[in-house]
């Protein structure tokens, strides 16, 4: 259950991003991209976030999760597909020149903050 440490880092990422922009207002919503191969269980992250956010300026925030699909690419077929498992073998030609195109991501994409004039 590493989602708790992920949730703490997510909060740090939002806080430092807002600090750099000089935004001090409380956060209402955090948009997070969670890759199918990120190793993070969305429900566990939501639960961990609830515990981790208290006494931070994200205390009133909710997570809005978007799942980034696991997409593999076969160099031989020049084809990409949404894979159920991250097995680097083409499910059509059996080729092994396969790479992961997306699905590893775990990032904050945006936040909603309460309206307040920005310095």
């Amino acid at each position: 259950m590493h989602e708790y440490s992920i949730a703490c880092r997510l909060i740090e990422a939002v806080e430092s991003g807002l600090d750099e922009r000089g935004v001090a207002a409380p956060v209402g919503r955090v948009e997070v991209l969670v890759g199918e191969l990120s190793g993070v269980v969305p429900e566990a992250l939501e639960l961990a976030f609830e515990a981790a956010k208290t006494e931070t300026r994200l205390a009133g925030a909710e997570l809005a999760l978007t799942i980034e699909p696991l997409v593999l690419w076969c160099e031989s077929c020049r084809r990409e597909w949404h894979a159920a498992e991250p097995f680097l073998i083409c499910d059509e030609c059996g080729g092994t020149q396969v790479e992961i195109r997306s699905g590893r991501g775990l990032s904050v994409t945006g936040v909603d903050v309460e309206d307040e004039q920005r310095p």
């Binding site: 997510l10 740090e12 990422a13 936040v111 909603d112 903050v113």
Partner: peptide
Amino acid sequence: MRIDLSRDVLAGND
């Protein structure tokens, strides 16, 4: 107000 924040969650650890 929405603010665009493109941040890898594990960037600090990385």
